[in-house]
């Protein structure tokens, strides 16, 4: 192909970035479904493979461009940023609410709420303990790292509120992102062992894990029908974390460290 030809090709792809993303995701899903049925006999969900391919491509995109938005940092693939961004993600999650059985959701409401509170406090305490084990002794740093273990949004929000050092904020985001990625990959593998096959456990799972991206992708890869139940509780998680981490939980850490 000539230089002008490549420019023209590039121009069409960049001008239609969202369509490029639709086409590529379609191809990834088609490939994943074929792999799932041919190689694993349907034991591994096609969407689980597709999500892992997505993460692998994100890793490659990050290495290739040095950016922070995975594949979408490559200009012709910038459509991934719009397609997988918060706006369309939330739009599609809300749409799944039509599949929620209201009575069932109400009955799981209390246990879901308990999971939501535990899902904020326990990861925070774990993260705080980890920071202590790695030699950090000031309450602001410990709280910011603890908040990162809740979700990768709670970490930086808490860090900003408490005035943590940028490098600590980066660490806390890192823990949150690893958490989210690990949830996406491992949920379908452990689903059977933790009894994740019914709406109530899905709501507990959503409240406990918190990370909306991890929960919804993990459930999508396990059983598409469970997604709305998990999403219903998970979406309150980040808000609750942002509420508790820089306030009550920080004061608790301060009381211990003195």
């Amino acid at each position: 192909m000539t230089g002008a030809g490549i420019t023209l090709f590039d121009h069409v792809l960049t001008a239609n970035a969202l369509l490029v993303a639709f086409a590529m995701v379609g191809i990834i899903m088609w490939l994943s479904n074929a792999l799932a049925s041919r190689l694993t006999g349907g034991r591994i969900h096609g969407s689980a493979i597709a999500i892992i391919i997505g993460l692998a491509l994100a890793f490659w995109g990050g290495i290739a461009t040095g950016g922070h938005k995975g594949l979408s940092d490559i200009p012709v693939l910038s459509g991934f940023g719009l397609m997988g961004g918060a706006m369309l993600r939330d739009f599609a999650i809300v749409a799944t609410a039509c599949e929620v059985d209201i009575e069932r959701a109400k009955r799981a409401g209390l246990v879901g709420t308990i999971a939501l509170v535990l899902g904020t406090v326990l990861p925070f305490l774990f993260g705080a303990g980890l920071a202590w084990a790695f030699g950090y002794r000031d309450a602001v740093t410990i709280s910011t790292i603890g908040a990162g273990a809740v979700t990768y949004i709670v970490g930086p929000v808490t860090g900003a509120a408490l005035g943590a050092a940028p490098v600590i904020v980066t660490l806390s985001i890192g823990i949150g992102v690893v958490k989210s990625v690990v949830v996406m990959i491992t949920t379908p593998l452990v689903a059977r062992f933790i009894g994740l096959d019914n709406p109530r456990t899905a709501m507990v799972f959503g409240g406990m894990m918190g990370t909306v991206s991890g929960v919804t992708a993990g459930l999508a890869a396990t059983d598409r029908r469970l997604v709305p139940y998990g999403a219903l509780t998970a979406t309150f998680h980040t808000g609750l974390g942002c509420l508790l981490a820089p306030s009550i939980l920080y004061f608790a850490v301060l009381a211990v460290t003195g």
Partner: peptide
């Protein structure tokens, strides 16, 4: 969700 996975800071 797959597009979302592809833009995480892995």
């Amino acid at each position: 969700v797959i597009a979302m996975a592809a833009q995480q800071d892995v």
